[in-house]
């Protein structure tokens, strides 16, 4: 799949932001006044910034409001609705803590649940697609929630907890990669089921047109697979192993935490880029792609 920068930014930044807001919602930490302003400002900037960047890939962004209407069936619509609800509820708890020096625990817990529900909805946009077997797997929501909660703990300055959660997220990431590598094979979709042709060895003889098209640009994207192995190691190290090591082993402080956050963010962008670049869409089979990865 084509790794659109706006989508990668959106899912990494908003995942982190909603993770931090979830921790603020449950009161861990429960800052007041100016410190609360700083914490909530970081959370809202990441979450809202991510949401806004997600509209950049739309063909008709001026109609984006319509995306709030189909929550009955569409995970994309659910994500939009839940995100707005989460931001509104967390906005109230932010006002209470920043201006009135008081926590609203009941609203905070609801807000935290909505924040995690937003991240879950984001992951389900991908996990619900049967057409991309690598994504159509329970490890996809686990992966998004794992990184979001770990990143939230990191930003919420929970040194030891964040270190542990990062390692948990890292394990989920590795399981997601390993399961993903055999997902297309396990899905059973092949060029033979795609065309119904039998009676011999099948190959794509000629594509429909000499040039590329929307489908080949968007769905038959191949870059990154060449360096996938190295990128996985870099992503896993920067997103999980290095920040976890810093938090658990290095002396605590703003420098350690800052380095851990930067490393985590860089690694997360790499793993999220791979999430798209490595994903095989079954339509690629019609174009002769993914041979050797199918059953």
């Amino acid at each position: 799949m084509h790794p659109a920068p706006s989508i990668i930014l959106f899912s990494t930044l908003s995942g982190l932001g909603f993770g931090l807001l979830a921790f603020l919602g449950v009161g861990a930490p429960a800052p007041m006044g100016r410190i609360a302003l700083v914490f909530y400002a970081i959370g809202f900037t990441l979450a809202v910034g991510g949401l806004i960047s997600s509209t950049f890939h739309l063909g008709r962004p001026e109609r984006a409001w319509r995306a709030f209407t189909q929550w009955r069936t569409s995970w994309l619509s659910r994500e939009g609705c839940i995100a707005v609800a989460a931001l509104m509820v967390m906005g109230l708890t932010a006002i209470a803590q920043i201006f009135f020096g008081t926590r609203l625990p009941f609203l905070g817990w609801i807000g935290a649940a909505l924040c995690l529900a937003t991240v879950f909805s984001t992951s389900m946009i991908y996990a619900s697609l049967r057409t991309v077997p690598r994504w159509h797997d329970p490890t996809t929501p686990a992966l998004f929630l794992g990184w979001s909660i770990a990143g939230g703990a990191l930003l919420a300055a929970h040194t030891v907890l964040a270190g542990g959660l990062l390692l948990v997220a890292l394990v989920i990431q590795i399981v997601h990669w390993l399961r993903g590598d055999s997902a297309l094979r396990r899905s059973g979709t092949t060029l033979a089921t795609a065309t119904g042709l039998t009676g011999g060895a099948l190959r794509s003889f000629e594509p429909p047109h000499t040039g590329g098209n929307y489908l080949t640009h968007e769905m038959v994207f191949q870059i990154g697979r060449k360096h996938a192995r190295n990128l996985r190691i870099i992503g896993a190290a920067l997103a999980g192993a290095l920040p976890a090591g810093l938090l658990l082993l290095a002396p605590a402080g703003h420098v350690t935490a800052g380095l851990a956050v930067l490393s985590h963010l860089a690694g997360l962008v790499v793993t999220r880029w791979l999430f798209f670049a490595e994903a095989e869409h079954v339509v690629g089979l019609y174009y002769g792609a993914h041979q050797g990865k199918t059953a």
Binding site: H57, R60, L76, T131, Y286
Partner: peptide, 14 residues
Amino acid sequence: CIGCGLCAWACPYG
């Protein structure tokens, strides 16, 4: 249509 492209992702046939 907002042109988000999700329907094209969901279609196995292109």
